[in-house]
Amino acid sequence: MAMRREHLVNAAIALLLLAVPLWASWAGQNFYVTLATRIAILALAAVGLNIALGLGGLVSFGHAAFFGIGGYVAGILASHAVSGAPLLGFLPGTKLMPVIWIVAILASGFVAAAIGAISLRTGGVYFIMITLAFAQMIFYFALSWPAYGGEDGLSIMLRNAFPGVNTLRPLPFFLICYTLLSLGLLLFALIRGSRFGAALQAARQNEVRTASVGIAPFRIRLVAFTISGMVTGVAGALFADLNRFVSPSMLSWHMSGELIVLIVLGGVGRLYGPVVGAALYVVLEYWLGGITERWQFFLGLVLLGVVLFARGGIVGLLAGRARHD
């Protein structure tokens, strides 16, 4: 029963996230389309984190690293395409989104594999702090490396292009982001239902038993962490295109914290948890920001309330506890 209710809740959320911007665009309210685009992109980033955190129980406090790397891939490739100077002397820049996404996936996946290989040797609270520290390392590097704007960040003059779609208009760009979010959710569902996903979740629930039936947790976790970083990296590339700007703030530890917040708000390990969390977070940010300059104060109190009193997040409230069947 509970599972079927979750399907209904998920379908309703997916439709709502599609319907609101369509209606807003029809009504000429492009601001709400942009808000929905922001929700879709942050949700995609959090879906990526949810693979590591929700399925694998790996509390990464450094996913801003992958988000920011995706963003910088978009910014750097676009800047080389505009200037005409090849990257590292031989790689041409590009303004084509599909190429940018592939490079973002490769770059964030490579860094995720490297960070994962070191930090997954440890566990628990060590893992939290080490992922945070590595993300911070990349943050400081971006801050002090002046070639791509350093502290000031990097502007993307004109949003990158997708063949056959006018990405400069808000609705088509939203639809691109929504499609990628749907693909990300599909990937999450496929992983969760696969043998690999079963092993990953088993390692979360009981590491010793998993190892004793012949499954080494380290490699499975490393693969999951890498895939997780890749998905968040694509979201980062989209985020840079949404803002037409990328700066070290995308790499900051506040960003990592926000991604965790999105998941916990929505419901850890739930398919649509990140989507609900992102929607709630962006709407809350917008709504509180309209009422008071001190919105972060109240956002903090709301978060505190959710952690202390609403375990299981919003999807948990709507659809009941997660079933393991």
Partner: peptide, 14 residues
């Protein structure tokens, strides 16, 4: 640890 990270993160905002 996840709840602890989140709650203390919220406290930082406050």
């Amino acid at each position: 640890h996840l709840d602890q990270v989140l709650a203390t993160f919220a406290l930082i905002l406050v």
